[in-house]
């Protein structure tokens, strides 16, 4: 009996270690947080000086610095320090679909999955001007659903993070400019 339990524990440890290694891979994988088939369009309005600096969602306790991210060769840069603003999308508050994403860690966008329609999102610029958005939609989509990042005719920000088993899905919140 002891022998059976011993072998069970050894096999269990192997599965734990395999899952651990896979999670470690997910943590470092460049594909994490990416969307496939995303056609990158150069942003006209972006310059380092006017890039957004901070994002907060008070109802979720999210308050993070924003770092600029540019997709090169299908690699989506991520940061452990805050949220990433896709520089090839319009500046938040301008006409179009601004894209901001972050890891699903509790210190970053981990609580984004609790976002509710009506929650306020505030984006702050270097000159301390603030743009206030209100979440109008939330959904879980597959990484292949890149139309979520397609240009729009309104002034919106699309926030997303990973969700689902082994980060296989993307949780998306779309907020529209209010002021």
């Amino acid at each position: 009996m002891k022998k059976i339990i011993a072998w069970f524990l050894i096999l269990q440890s192997l599965s734990f270690l395999t899952v651990g290694l896979y999670q470690l891979y997910l943590h470092e994988a460049p594909a994490q947080l990416s969307f496939s088939n995303y056609y990158v369009q150069p942003s006209v309005s972006f310059s380092e000086k006017n890039a957004p600096k901070n994002i907060s969602i008070p109802s979720l306790g999210i308050n993070l610095p924003i770092y600029q991210a540019t997709v090169v060769n299908h690699v989506w840069p991520t940061t452990d320090l805050g949220a990433s603003y896709l520089t090839t999308s319009p500046l938040p508050g301008k006409i179009g679909n601004s894209v901001i994403y972050g890891h699903n860690w509790t210190s970053l966008f981990g609580h984004l999955v609790n976002a509710k329609v009506g929650d306020t999102v505030i984006v702050t610029y270097p000159d301390h001007t603030k743009k206030t958005f209100v979440i109008e939609y939330t959904s879980v989509v597959s990484p292949a659903e890149s139309s979520i990042l397609a240009p729009s005719t309104d002034r919106r920000i699309t926030l997303y993070t990973c969700t689902g088993l082994f980060d296989s899905k993307r949780f998306v919140a779309v907020a529209i400019l209010k002021s």
């Binding site: 440890s13 192997l14 599965s15 734990f16 270690l17 899952v19 651990g20 999670q23 470690l24 997910l26 943590h27 994490q32 890891h103 699903n104 860690w105 509790t106 981990g110 999955v113 879980v140 993070t161 990973c162 969700t163 689902g164 088993l165 082994f166 980060d167 949780f171």
Partner: peptide, 19 residues
């Protein structure tokens, strides 16, 4: 929305510790 914290250092440490 389950297992949304994959890739988190804490989760990785717990899984390795359990293993």
């Amino acid at each position: 929305n389950t297992l949304a914290s994959t890739g988190n250092w804490l989760v990785i440490a717990i899984v390795f510790l359990a293993g």
